[in-house]
Design a binder for these strands. Structure first.
Lengths: 138, 138
DNA sequence: GTGTTTGCAAAGTGTTTGCAATTTA
DNA sequence: TAAATTGCAAACACTTTGCAAACAC
Protein backbone atom coordinates (compact mmCIF):
# COMPACT_ATOMS: atom_id res chain seq x y z
CA UNK A 1 0.00 0.00 0.00
CA UNK A 2 1.26 3.39 -0.98
CA UNK A 3 1.03 6.17 1.54
CA UNK A 4 -0.40 9.04 -0.42
CA UNK A 5 -0.10 11.61 2.32
CA UNK A 6 2.18 14.41 1.19
CA UNK A 7 4.87 15.31 3.75
CA UNK A 8 4.27 18.76 5.10
CA UNK A 9 7.79 19.92 4.42
CA UNK A 10 7.17 19.10 0.80
CA UNK A 11 4.06 21.28 0.70
CA UNK A 12 6.00 24.16 2.25
CA UNK A 13 8.86 23.77 -0.22
CA UNK A 14 6.50 23.63 -3.13
CA UNK A 15 4.76 26.81 -1.97
CA UNK A 16 8.10 28.56 -1.61
CA UNK A 17 9.20 27.42 -5.04
CA UNK A 18 6.26 29.21 -6.64
CA UNK A 19 6.60 32.24 -4.38
CA UNK A 20 3.51 31.60 -2.31
CA UNK A 21 3.98 32.78 1.24
CA UNK A 22 2.96 30.23 3.87
CA UNK A 23 0.24 32.32 5.43
CA UNK A 24 -2.04 31.21 8.23
CA UNK A 25 -4.86 30.56 5.72
CA UNK A 26 -2.76 28.57 3.28
CA UNK A 27 -1.26 26.45 6.05
CA UNK A 28 -4.66 25.69 7.54
CA UNK A 29 -6.04 24.64 4.17
CA UNK A 30 -2.91 22.63 3.32
CA UNK A 31 -3.24 20.74 6.60
CA UNK A 32 -6.85 19.86 5.85
CA UNK A 33 -5.99 18.86 2.30
CA UNK A 34 -2.77 16.90 2.69
CA UNK A 35 -2.89 15.28 6.12
CA UNK A 36 -5.25 12.62 4.84
CA UNK A 37 -4.58 10.87 1.52
CA UNK A 38 -6.68 10.99 -1.65
CA UNK A 39 -9.10 13.74 -0.85
CA UNK A 40 -11.64 15.16 -3.28
CA UNK A 41 -13.04 18.45 -2.07
CA UNK A 42 -15.15 21.25 -3.39
CA UNK A 43 -14.44 24.83 -2.42
CA UNK A 44 -17.61 25.00 -0.35
CA UNK A 45 -16.84 21.76 1.46
CA UNK A 46 -13.29 22.82 2.32
CA UNK A 47 -14.57 26.17 3.50
CA UNK A 48 -17.03 24.49 5.86
CA UNK A 49 -14.35 22.10 7.07
CA UNK A 50 -12.02 24.97 7.88
CA UNK A 51 -14.79 26.80 9.70
CA UNK A 52 -15.58 23.68 11.72
CA UNK A 53 -11.94 23.56 12.86
CA UNK A 54 -12.11 27.19 13.88
CA UNK A 55 -9.86 28.37 11.06
CA UNK A 56 -11.21 31.64 9.80
CA UNK A 57 -10.71 31.63 6.02
CA UNK A 58 -13.00 33.44 3.64
CA UNK A 59 -14.61 31.57 0.77
CA UNK A 60 -12.83 33.80 -1.73
CA UNK A 61 -9.51 32.83 -0.21
CA UNK A 62 -10.44 29.15 -0.37
CA UNK A 63 -11.07 29.55 -4.10
CA UNK A 64 -7.85 31.47 -4.63
CA UNK A 65 -5.85 28.98 -2.61
CA UNK A 66 -7.26 25.95 -4.40
CA UNK A 67 -6.29 27.47 -7.73
CA UNK A 68 -2.84 28.48 -6.54
CA UNK A 69 -2.22 24.97 -5.20
CA UNK A 70 -3.42 23.56 -8.50
CA UNK A 71 -1.02 25.77 -10.45
CA UNK A 72 1.77 24.73 -8.09
CA UNK A 73 1.07 21.09 -8.96
CA UNK A 74 -0.21 20.14 -5.51
CA UNK A 75 -3.78 19.59 -6.66
CA UNK A 76 -5.61 18.50 -9.74
CA UNK A 77 -8.92 20.05 -10.67
CA UNK A 78 -11.62 17.70 -11.89
CA UNK A 79 -14.89 18.67 -13.48
CA UNK A 80 -17.80 16.30 -13.27
CA UNK A 81 -20.94 18.34 -13.55
CA UNK A 82 -21.61 21.95 -14.40
CA UNK A 83 -22.34 22.49 -10.75
CA UNK A 84 -18.87 22.83 -9.30
CA UNK A 85 -15.23 21.80 -9.44
CA UNK A 86 -13.60 19.16 -7.31
CA UNK A 87 -9.96 19.33 -6.28
CA UNK A 88 -8.05 16.09 -5.96
CA UNK A 89 -4.96 15.74 -3.76
CA UNK A 90 -3.76 12.80 -5.87
CA UNK A 91 -1.97 14.35 -8.84
CA UNK A 92 -0.91 11.05 -10.40
CA UNK A 93 -2.56 9.81 -13.55
CA UNK A 94 -5.77 8.10 -12.50
CA UNK A 95 -9.52 8.04 -13.02
CA UNK A 96 -12.63 8.67 -10.97
CA UNK A 97 -15.85 7.20 -9.76
CA UNK A 98 -18.66 9.64 -9.35
CA UNK A 99 -21.60 8.66 -7.16
CA UNK A 100 -24.54 10.43 -8.76
CA UNK A 101 -26.73 10.15 -5.66
CA UNK A 102 -24.33 11.60 -3.10
CA UNK A 103 -21.98 13.65 -5.28
CA UNK A 104 -19.02 11.80 -3.82
CA UNK A 105 -15.84 11.37 -5.90
CA UNK A 106 -13.37 8.50 -5.46
CA UNK A 107 -10.25 7.31 -7.22
CA UNK A 108 -10.47 4.27 -9.46
CA UNK A 109 -7.66 1.83 -8.70
CA UNK A 110 -5.68 2.33 -11.88
CA UNK A 111 -4.88 -1.34 -12.41
CA UNK A 112 -8.56 -2.18 -12.87
CA UNK A 113 -9.31 0.29 -15.55
CA UNK A 114 -7.19 1.78 -18.28
CA UNK A 115 -7.44 3.76 -21.45
CA UNK A 116 -5.64 2.13 -24.36
CA UNK A 117 -4.86 3.23 -27.88
CA UNK A 118 -3.54 6.26 -29.65
CA UNK A 119 -5.96 9.13 -29.81
CA UNK A 120 -4.54 10.24 -33.19
CA UNK A 121 -4.11 13.82 -32.24
CA UNK A 122 -4.45 16.44 -35.00
CA UNK A 123 -1.32 18.22 -36.32
CA UNK A 124 0.29 20.53 -33.84
CA UNK A 125 -1.93 19.42 -30.98
CA UNK A 126 -0.76 17.82 -27.77
CA UNK A 127 -2.72 15.70 -25.30
CA UNK A 128 -2.79 17.74 -22.13
CA UNK A 129 -4.75 15.20 -20.12
CA UNK A 130 -7.25 12.39 -20.43
CA UNK A 131 -10.10 12.60 -17.97
CA UNK A 132 -12.16 9.51 -17.27
CA UNK A 133 -15.23 9.61 -15.06
CA UNK A 134 -17.23 6.48 -14.24
CA UNK A 135 -20.70 7.60 -13.27
CA UNK A 136 -22.33 5.31 -10.73
CA UNK A 137 -26.00 5.09 -9.91
CA UNK A 138 -28.04 2.63 -7.90
CA UNK B 1 -19.01 5.35 -43.37
CA UNK B 2 -22.04 5.61 -41.19
CA UNK B 3 -24.54 8.36 -41.84
CA UNK B 4 -25.20 9.79 -38.42
CA UNK B 5 -27.95 12.13 -39.48
CA UNK B 6 -31.16 11.21 -37.72
CA UNK B 7 -34.16 10.96 -40.07
CA UNK B 8 -36.65 13.65 -39.32
CA UNK B 9 -39.59 11.30 -39.04
CA UNK B 10 -37.69 9.57 -36.27
CA UNK B 11 -37.28 12.81 -34.37
CA UNK B 12 -40.99 13.52 -34.67
CA UNK B 13 -41.91 10.03 -33.53
CA UNK B 14 -39.57 10.23 -30.60
CA UNK B 15 -41.05 13.56 -29.54
CA UNK B 16 -44.55 12.12 -29.79
CA UNK B 17 -43.55 9.07 -27.77
CA UNK B 18 -42.56 11.26 -24.83
CA UNK B 19 -45.55 13.56 -25.24
CA UNK B 20 -43.63 16.56 -26.54
CA UNK B 21 -45.69 18.53 -29.01
CA UNK B 22 -43.87 19.37 -32.23
CA UNK B 23 -44.04 23.10 -31.79
CA UNK B 24 -42.47 25.63 -34.11
CA UNK B 25 -39.56 26.13 -31.69
CA UNK B 26 -38.86 22.45 -31.14
CA UNK B 27 -38.97 21.75 -34.86
CA UNK B 28 -36.61 24.61 -35.67
CA UNK B 29 -34.10 23.45 -33.06
CA UNK B 30 -34.43 19.82 -34.11
CA UNK B 31 -33.68 20.81 -37.71
CA UNK B 32 -30.54 22.65 -36.65
CA UNK B 33 -29.46 19.79 -34.44
CA UNK B 34 -30.19 16.74 -36.53
CA UNK B 35 -29.80 17.77 -40.15
CA UNK B 36 -26.04 17.61 -39.83
CA UNK B 37 -24.34 14.66 -38.13
CA UNK B 38 -22.30 14.68 -34.92
CA UNK B 39 -22.96 18.11 -33.61
CA UNK B 40 -21.75 19.43 -30.24
CA UNK B 41 -23.58 22.57 -29.27
CA UNK B 42 -23.93 24.77 -26.24
CA UNK B 43 -27.25 26.41 -25.44
CA UNK B 44 -25.85 29.84 -26.29
CA UNK B 45 -24.45 28.65 -29.61
CA UNK B 46 -27.69 26.98 -30.65
CA UNK B 47 -29.61 30.07 -29.65
CA UNK B 48 -27.41 32.25 -31.85
CA UNK B 49 -27.68 29.79 -34.71
CA UNK B 50 -31.45 29.83 -34.52
CA UNK B 51 -31.48 33.61 -34.43
CA UNK B 52 -29.20 33.73 -37.50
CA UNK B 53 -31.72 31.59 -39.38
CA UNK B 54 -34.52 33.92 -38.37
CA UNK B 55 -36.10 31.41 -36.00
CA UNK B 56 -37.29 33.30 -32.97
CA UNK B 57 -36.66 31.06 -29.97
CA UNK B 58 -35.93 32.40 -26.52
CA UNK B 59 -32.83 31.24 -24.68
CA UNK B 60 -34.97 29.76 -21.91
CA UNK B 61 -36.76 27.63 -24.48
CA UNK B 62 -33.45 26.50 -25.95
CA UNK B 63 -32.39 25.29 -22.51
CA UNK B 64 -35.72 23.58 -21.89
CA UNK B 65 -35.70 21.96 -25.31
CA UNK B 66 -32.14 20.67 -24.99
CA UNK B 67 -33.03 19.01 -21.71
CA UNK B 68 -36.27 17.59 -23.05
CA UNK B 69 -34.43 16.15 -26.07
CA UNK B 70 -31.81 14.71 -23.74
CA UNK B 71 -34.46 13.02 -21.62
CA UNK B 72 -36.07 11.69 -24.79
CA UNK B 73 -32.75 10.07 -25.71
CA UNK B 74 -32.10 12.28 -28.74
CA UNK B 75 -29.13 14.05 -27.19
CA UNK B 76 -26.40 13.33 -24.72
CA UNK B 77 -25.18 16.00 -22.35
CA UNK B 78 -21.44 16.27 -21.88
CA UNK B 79 -19.66 18.30 -19.26
CA UNK B 80 -16.14 19.47 -19.91
CA UNK B 81 -15.58 22.57 -17.85
CA UNK B 82 -17.58 24.29 -15.16
CA UNK B 83 -18.45 26.92 -17.74
CA UNK B 84 -21.27 25.28 -19.62
CA UNK B 85 -22.79 22.07 -20.94
CA UNK B 86 -22.42 20.70 -24.44
CA UNK B 87 -25.11 18.64 -26.09
CA UNK B 88 -24.06 15.89 -28.47
CA UNK B 89 -26.31 14.56 -31.22
CA UNK B 90 -24.39 11.29 -31.24
CA UNK B 91 -25.92 9.21 -28.47
CA UNK B 92 -23.79 6.13 -29.11
CA UNK B 93 -21.01 5.18 -26.73
CA UNK B 94 -17.98 7.26 -27.67
CA UNK B 95 -15.41 9.71 -26.34
CA UNK B 96 -14.44 13.31 -26.94
CA UNK B 97 -11.61 15.59 -27.88
CA UNK B 98 -11.72 18.98 -26.27
CA UNK B 99 -9.69 21.79 -27.84
CA UNK B 100 -8.72 23.95 -24.87
CA UNK B 101 -7.92 26.98 -27.03
CA UNK B 102 -11.15 27.16 -29.03
CA UNK B 103 -13.58 25.30 -26.77
CA UNK B 104 -14.47 23.01 -29.66
CA UNK B 105 -15.66 19.45 -28.94
CA UNK B 106 -15.24 16.55 -31.37
CA UNK B 107 -15.90 12.84 -31.31
CA UNK B 108 -12.98 10.46 -30.95
CA UNK B 109 -13.18 7.67 -33.51
CA UNK B 110 -13.98 4.86 -31.11
CA UNK B 111 -11.70 2.26 -32.70
CA UNK B 112 -8.62 4.31 -31.84
CA UNK B 113 -9.21 4.66 -28.19
CA UNK B 114 -10.85 2.38 -25.68
CA UNK B 115 -11.40 1.93 -22.01
CA UNK B 116 -10.59 -1.58 -20.83
CA UNK B 117 -11.00 -3.44 -17.58
CA UNK B 118 -13.64 -3.95 -14.95
CA UNK B 119 -14.25 -0.92 -12.83
CA UNK B 120 -15.09 -3.14 -9.81
CA UNK B 121 -18.21 -1.31 -8.92
CA UNK B 122 -19.20 -1.24 -5.24
CA UNK B 123 -22.16 -3.36 -4.04
CA UNK B 124 -25.49 -2.21 -5.34
CA UNK B 125 -24.00 0.33 -7.70
CA UNK B 126 -24.38 0.35 -11.45
CA UNK B 127 -22.21 2.06 -14.09
CA UNK B 128 -24.47 4.66 -15.62
CA UNK B 129 -21.89 5.94 -18.09
CA UNK B 130 -18.17 6.30 -18.63
CA UNK B 131 -17.13 9.73 -19.83
CA UNK B 132 -13.74 10.18 -21.46
CA UNK B 133 -12.42 13.59 -22.44
CA UNK B 134 -9.07 14.01 -24.19
CA UNK B 135 -7.94 17.57 -23.55
CA UNK B 136 -5.88 18.97 -26.39
CA UNK B 137 -3.58 21.97 -26.27
CA UNK B 138 -1.04 23.36 -28.66
C1' DG C 1 -61.87 24.47 -24.38
C1' DT C 2 -58.13 22.29 -21.95
C1' DG C 3 -53.68 21.36 -21.09
C1' DT C 4 -49.11 22.40 -22.99
C1' DT C 5 -45.62 25.53 -24.22
C1' DT C 6 -43.46 29.90 -24.64
C1' DG C 7 -40.98 34.23 -23.40
C1' DC C 8 -39.78 37.43 -20.27
C1' DA C 9 -37.71 38.94 -16.29
C1' DA C 10 -36.28 37.64 -11.91
C1' DA C 11 -33.96 34.51 -9.03
C1' DG C 12 -30.35 31.06 -8.30
C1' DT C 13 -25.69 28.97 -8.08
C1' DG C 14 -20.94 28.55 -8.13
C1' DT C 15 -17.14 31.42 -9.05
C1' DT C 16 -14.26 35.61 -9.85
C1' DT C 17 -12.84 40.35 -9.14
C1' DG C 18 -11.81 45.20 -7.30
C1' DC C 19 -10.00 47.29 -3.66
C1' DA C 20 -8.91 48.91 1.08
C1' DA C 21 -7.03 46.91 5.14
C1' DT C 22 -3.84 43.54 6.88
C1' DT C 23 -0.01 40.59 6.99
C1' DT C 24 4.54 38.81 5.56
C1' DA C 25 9.49 39.03 4.57
C1' DT D 1 8.71 49.49 4.12
C1' DA D 2 7.54 47.18 0.02
C1' DA D 3 5.14 43.54 -1.85
C1' DA D 4 1.93 39.91 -1.22
C1' DT D 5 -2.35 38.40 0.73
C1' DT D 6 -6.86 38.65 2.69
C1' DG D 7 -11.93 39.52 3.15
C1' DC D 8 -15.80 41.72 1.82
C1' DA D 9 -19.21 42.87 -1.34
C1' DA D 10 -20.26 43.46 -5.90
C1' DA D 11 -19.95 41.57 -10.37
C1' DC D 12 -20.17 37.52 -13.32
C1' DA D 13 -21.64 33.67 -16.44
C1' DC D 14 -24.58 30.14 -17.10
C1' DT D 15 -28.81 28.13 -15.95
C1' DT D 16 -33.44 27.62 -13.88
C1' DT D 17 -37.97 29.22 -12.51
C1' DG D 18 -42.64 31.66 -11.93
C1' DC D 19 -46.21 33.18 -14.33
C1' DA D 20 -49.25 35.40 -17.81
C1' DA D 21 -50.01 35.18 -22.69
C1' DA D 22 -49.97 32.23 -26.81
C1' DC D 23 -50.46 27.87 -28.88
C1' DA D 24 -51.57 22.83 -30.05
C1' DC D 25 -54.82 19.36 -30.17
Amino acid sequence: MLNRTRPFSHVLEQLRSVNLRPTRQRLALAKLLFEKPDRHVTAEALHKEAAAEGARVSLATVYNTLHQFTEAGLLREIVIGTGCSYFDTNTNDHHHYYYEDTGRVEDVPVQHFRVVGDPEVPEGMVVRRVDVVVRLGS
